[in-house]
Simulated scan of single mutants.
Amino acid sequence: MHIPHNLFKRRLHERVQQFGAWHTMGGGQQAELLAAAGYDWVLIDSEHGAMEVTDVLAVLQALSGFASCAPVVRIAENDTALIKRHLDQGAQTLMVPMVHSAQAARAAVAAMRYAPEGARGMNSITRASRFGAVSDYVAQAASELCLIVQIESRAGMDALEEIAAVSGVDAIFIGPADLAADMGYPGNLAAPEVEAAVLDGFARLKALDMPSGIITLDEAALRRYIAAGSRFTALGIDAAWLMAAARASLARFQDI
């Protein structure tokens, strides 16, 4: 048996646009719905979403039935033990939040690599290796793993080139909400200073040929960011979509 191919990573190398959806509410069926809707990737959010490590497993299993939709797991923090657990249960693409320096990026890379290159704990009988059926998993794992580091502070933006230069970082995701707060504009992602910083980040990453991505609920801003170089772009959040539809439906009947 062969190690599963990482569709998300392959598409990054092909430089095609990948549209994603944010899954925060937990449960395999909700993630399946997003995959069935046609999204290229679904972000399983265990940083802010109500999902622990074992909850993420059920979502990974649900999404495995969709060959064209790649799961991306955002872990709670840049922690070696958390990274190990998510990788062992079959996650191949991880997003690590709050990466403010090249040192933090190197720590995330090390957590995703077996010794001697890294510090990932050795266990060959896990879901990632099809419980040992992939006989060469340890040797092949790194080639199919994908690390996205999330830049969401002024310090991270200042160190953008150094972070992008870290071997093993496959892509960079700009988090505009925390970046806006760190810049002194909490809740105001549309502040001209924030958008200018994001656009500058995309320009710098494009010059380095480093794949970049973003999420915002502002469609006009998304279009500008795509034009600036965003290659894996999240178009919305499940909870936000549900709330918007629920409110709109109620509003249509409140005047009766």
Score class of each variant (00 low, 15 high):
D218S: 14
A228F: 08
I256S: 09
L250Y: 15
A62T: 03
A133I: 11
R15K: 13
M243W: 00
A196D: 11
S46V: 05
E144G: 06
I3Y: 13
T93A: 11
L34W: 10
D170C: 07
R252Y: 07
D136F: 03
H5A: 14
A128E: 03
M95D: 05
V198T: 10
L33E: 00
L160D: 13
H5T: 15
R10H: 12
L205F: 06
A139I: 10
V109M: 05
R154M: 02
I44W: 05
F253L: 09
V134F: 06
R10P: 12
I163C: 12
E32T: 04
E117G: 01
H13R: 13
S230M: 09
I174W: 08
C69Q: 01
L57K: 02
L222Y: 10
I256P: 02
A119E: 13
I44R: 09
L82A: 07
I125E: 01
L189S: 06
R154G: 14
V42N: 11
T93Y: 06
A239I: 10
L43H: 14
D238S: 05
P116V: 04
G156V: 04
V166G: 10
S124F: 01
V149E: 06
A70Y: 11
A190S: 15
F8S: 08
M112D: 13
G26W: 04
M157N: 02
A110I: 09
A221Q: 14
A251H: 04
I3W: 00
V72N: 02
A244S: 12
E162N: 11
L60F: 10
D88L: 08
L12H: 03
M243C: 11
Y225I: 07
D79Y: 00
D158S: 07
Q18C: 12
V99K: 04
L43T: 03
A36M: 13
A165S: 12
H23K: 03
A227P: 09
E47M: 13
E195H: 15
V166K: 03
N6C: 07
G187L: 01
A248P: 02
D255F: 10
D158W: 05
A240M: 07
A139Y: 14
G213Q: 06
V59A: 06
M157E: 04
M183D: 00
E152K: 10
V72P: 11
F202V: 11
A164S: 11
V96C: 00
A115M: 03
L147D: 08
A196I: 09
L33V: 14
A111W: 07
R106T: 11
R154T: 12
S212F: 10
R113K: 13
A141Q: 01
D209M: 02
P211F: 05
A181E: 03
V198N: 06
G184E: 09
G121K: 01
M98W: 14
G184P: 00
S153G: 12
